[in-house]
Nucleic acid binder design. Structure first.
Length: 196
DNA sequence: CCCTGATTCGC
DNA sequence: GCGAATCAGG
């Protein structure tokens, strides 16, 4: 992937908005977060002291023998923080939409759980567990969700009291274990309800 | 362990 | 210029 003007645009925008390198990388696609960071630096907009306030130190062990003993990595003089004011046209981002369409559960997970299904096929176990897990939920907002956070919605999206479980998920799954159990029926608990 | 950004250096 | 590998902090 080449850093087209377009992509750089997105990069700058997102970085300016405080997006993380990995998020930007995912958004752009075709690049790793390293690539993004590298580009950010090359663009000279790395102003974001997050780690290593201390000077760089790299005693790389067995892969980067640097004979030199004078690591003068000083090239950036004092310059303004915002050297690049946004020009016009800065809202052409169709890919910026929040994407969280993992599909929503049928039941509401916030309040009194046992919802619609009167003849609930969902095991009480699962529901109970989910209800309890919600109490321990991290209560994340949309932007805080990642592939590894449970995306189980809790509360009413129309109100202030809306958040996502946010607990850890298992590889690939959109929800944490408890919510996964409720969302996806193992079909074990739903075997024939007529045979009896 | 997960994440974050920072730096270096071979390409 | 690019970005993987590596490093370091949280």
């Amino acid at each position: 992937m080449a850093w087209t003007d377009d992509r750089v645009e997105v990069l700058k925008k997102m970085w300016g908005e405080g997006k993380s390198a990995s998020q930007i990388a995912k958004e752009l696609g075709g690049v790793t977060r390293n690539a993004v960071i590298g580009k950010v630096h090359r663009l000279g907009l790395s102003n974001r002291a997050t780690t290593t306030k201390a000077p760089a130190k790299k005693p790389a062990a067995a892969a980067k023998p640097k004979a030199a003993s004078a690591p003068k990595t000083k090239a950036a003089p004092a310059s303004s923080n915002k050297p690049a004011p946004k020009v016009a046209a800065e809202t052409p981002l169709p890919i910026n939409a929040v994407n969280i369409p993992p599909r929503k559960p049928i039941i509401k997970a916030g309040q009194p759980l046992p919802p619609q299904p009167s003849t609930n096929e969902i095991s009480e176990e699962a529901l109970t567990k989910a209800a309890e897990v919600v109490k321990k939920a991290k209560k994340l907002h949309l932007m805080e969700l990642t592939e590894k956070t449970c995306k189980w919605p809790v509360g009413d999206p129309a109100t202030d009291d809306f958040w996502f479980c946010g607990l850890g998920t298992e590889t690939g799954k959109p929800y944490c274990e408890a919510h996964n159990a409720v969302a996806f029926q193992p079909m074990s608990a739903r075997r024939d309800r007529r045979s009896r």
